[in-house]
Design a protein around this nucleic acid. Structure first.
Lengths: 335, 335
DNA sequence: TTGTACGCGTTATCAC
DNA sequence: GTGATAACGCGTACAA
C-alpha cells in the first residue's frame, strides 16, 4: 500500500521547504515562477492532490455547504438542489445533501453532523412533523449562516427564500371561481408549516372575496399522498350538494383524486374542475392534464445559494424574505 | 464571536487532560464511569461537538462516501441515492452527492475533489459523453474502493451493480411481438455506455428469434430527450410500410413519441404499440399509460452501498457484477 | 485509570 | 523569495 504524496514528500524530492510547496500550489505571488513550475511538475508526477481535511482544518473554512431537504426524490427538491449546485460550484463550493424525511429528530441529528463537519453554511427546508424547532438553535450557537427555503422559519436568525403561497393559492381558487365553480373544496396539507397555512388563507380569501360560503368539511387536511387523494375524492362525492371544484395543495393528491373521480364516471373538468400546486412534471402528462402552480424550484435554489454565499462572505442580508416569482399554469383540468 | 469549545477547553475547566476528554467522549473503557459522566455533562453544558475535520484527519477515515450521478433530478438516480442513503446512514456514513451532467470532464474534477476530501469510497454512474475513462485511474492511485452502478465500467477494478438490460430489452421486444407487432423500431440511446448497447442487443436478439427482419433505419439513436422522441415519431410515420411497434430505451422519448403519434391521429396501442424503459412515475399517468421496465432503483442503491461498505471494511468482493432484479410492467400502451 | 508527547497535512507568521 | 516553526483539534502509543 503506497502512501499518498504530501507537500513534504514533494519538498524533500526537490530539496526545498514544504511551505514553499504549499505557497506554490496555492499560486502565491511570493514564489518565483520558475520554482512554481518545478513544484507543479513534481506534484503532477507524484500524483499529488491536496488533502482538504488538513487544509480546511488549518484555514478554518471548508467551502462546503450543508443542505437538508425532506426528500431528494421529489421533483421540487431535486430541482432546487440542482439550482443551488449550479451557483455553489461556480464559486468553488460543494454541497452535502441530506434528507430529513420530514422528521424533526433526524433533522436535529443532521444539523449536528453538518456542523461537526464544519460546513460554512446551511440551506434547509424544515421538516414538518412537529412544531419544536429548538434544535435549530445549534446553528446560532455555531454562528453559521443559514437560509431557509420553501418552508419559512422564523425561530432563529436566518434568511427565508419563498414563493408567495398566499397569492398563488388565491389566484388558483379565483381561477376556479371564474370558470363557474361555487362549491370548491380544498385539499390542505397538515403540519405546522408555512406553505400549507398560507395556501389555506389564500383559498379562504378568494372564496370570501367572491361571497362564496366555505363549509367546514370542505377543508380536508391530509398528508396529500396518493391514497389521501383517492380517499378525499370519495368523501367529496358523498357530499350533498356535490362540490364542483377542488383546489389541492399539491399535485399528487389532485391527480389521484382525478383518477378516482373518473373511475366514478365523473368528467373533469365538466363535472368538477381541479387545480393542483407544485408543477410536478407528471401534471403535464395526465389526462386531462392538470392546472397547477409552477414554483420555480431551480430559481429558488439559485437564490438561496446566492444569498447564503453572500452571507458566508460577510455581507449583510436584509431580514425580509426573498420572494421568488411563481405562476399559475392553466391546463385542461380547470377549464 | 465566541469560540467553539474544544476538548482542551473542557479539559481545562475540569482540570484534567485533553486526552482523557477525548477518550471519554469516544466512550473508551479506559476511563472511569464517574469521570465520563463529569466530562459528558461539561461537554453538553459547553455545547461541545467534535470537530470532524480534525478527527478525520487524525483517524485517516472520514466515514463519508462520494456519489457521482449524471443528474439527481432524474427519478432513477434520486431514488437510487435514497436507497444508498438508507444503508449508509445506518452504518454512520454520510454521502456527498455530485452531478456530472454526463460530462466526463466534470466527472474527472469531481473525482479529484472527492478524493481530496478523503472520502472512504465512491459510487459512480459514469458519464456517457465519451469513451475516455482514464480519469478513473486516480481512484486506483488512491486505493479507494469504488462501486459502479447502472452503467457498467470495467476500466478499473471496481464492483458493478446492474440490472440485466439485455434480458429486459429482449422480453419487452418479445412482448410487442407476441401482441402482433412485426415492424418494431428501437429508440436507442447514444454514447459508449453499457445500458444502451445491451438494450440494442436484446432487441435484435428478440427480433432474430422470431424471424423478423430489422431495417437499418429502425434503430434510431438519439439522446432520448422529449424533442428527440417527437422527431423520431414523425420520422417513423414517414416510413413505408409504417412500423407497428416501438421499443424505446427510455420513457421520456416513448411518452413524447406517443403524444406526437396521437396528434397525428394514430391510436395507441391499436395502430402502434409502445414499450418504454425505466419505470418513471410519469409512465403511470400518461394516457394510454406506458408499459415500461421497472429498474428497481432503490434496491440498486441499497446493494451498491452494502457492497461498498463491505469493501471499506476490508471484505473481499467477488469480481462478477451484482445483478438487481428488474421486471416488465405491462400497461395499456403495449396491449 | 490518567497524563505526556507526538503526529495527521496544511497554512499563517515571522524571520532572513 | 524562501525557510523554520507553530498551530488547527483530535487521537493514540507509551509511560506512569
Amino acid at each position: 500500500m503506497k502512501k499518498k504524496a504530501t507537500i513534504h514528500d514533494i519538498a524533500k524530492e526537490l530539496n526545498i521547504n514544504a511551505s514553499t510547496v504549499s505557497r506554490a500550489l496555492a499560486d502565491s505571488p511570493r514564489v518565483k515562477a520558475k520554482t512554481k513550475d518545478l513544484i507543479r511538475a513534481k506534484a503532477l508526477e507524484m500524483g499529488y492532490s491536496r488533502n482538504h481535511l488538513a487544509s480546511n482544518l488549518r484555514r478554518r473554512k471548508t467551502s462546503t455547504i450543508g443542505v437538508i431537504v425532506p426528500n431528494i426524490s421529489r421533483f421540487f427538491f431535486s430541482t432546487a438542489i440542482a439550482g443551488m449546485e449550479a451557483i455553489a460550484s461556480q464559486q468553488g463550493y460543494n454541497l452535502i445533501i441530506c434528507q430529513s424525511h420530514d422528521s424533526t429528530e433526524r433533522e436535529a441529528q443532521l444539523i449536528e453532523t453538518l456542523l461537526a463537519h464544519q460546513v460554512d453554511g446551511l440551506m434547509i427546508s424544515i421538516a414538518m412533523d412537529g412544531d419544536d424547532r429548538s434544535h435549530l438553535q445549534r446553528i446560532e450557537d455555531y454562528e453559521k449562516p443559514v437560509v431557509f427555503f420553501d418552508r419559512a422559519c422564523h425561530t432563529i436568525k436566518g434568511h427565508n427564500v419563498l414563493i408567495d403561497d398566499y397569492a398563488r393559492a388565491f389566484e388558483a381558487t379565483e381561477q376556479l371561481i371564474q370558470k363557474g365553480c361555487k362549491r370548491i373544496v380544498h385539499f390542505a396539507g397538515q403540519g405546522d408549516v408555512s406553505i400549507y397555512s398560507e395556501r389555506i388563507k389564500g383559498y379562504l380569501a378568494a372564496m370570501a372575496k367572491h361571497g362564496l360560503e366555505v363549509k367546514e368539511e370542505w377543508i380536508m387536511k391530509s398528508r396529500l399522498k396518493k391514497l389521501d387523494g383517492e380517499e378525499m375524492a370519495w368523501k367529496l362525492m358523498s357530499m350533498n350538494p356535490r362540490p364542483d371544484g377542488i383546489f389541492s395543495a399539491n399535485d399528487i393528491a389532485a391527480i389521484s383524486a382525478i383518477d378516482a373521480l373518473r373511475e366514478a364516471t365523473l368528467s373533469i373538468p365538466e363535472d368538477i374542475k381541479v387545480f393542483g400546486f407544485s408543477g410536478e412534471p407528471i401534471s403535464m402528462f395526465t389526462s386531462p392534464n392538470l392546472s397547477t402552480v409552477d414554483q420555480n424550484p431551480e430559481l429558488m435554489g439559485n437564490k438561496a445559494a446566492e444569498i447564503l454565499l453572500k452571507q458566508i462572505n460577510g455581507e449583510e442580508i436584509p431580514d425580509s424574505p426573498t420572494v421568488i416569482e411563481s405562476k399559475l399554469v392553466l391546463r385542461q383540468s380547470s377549464n
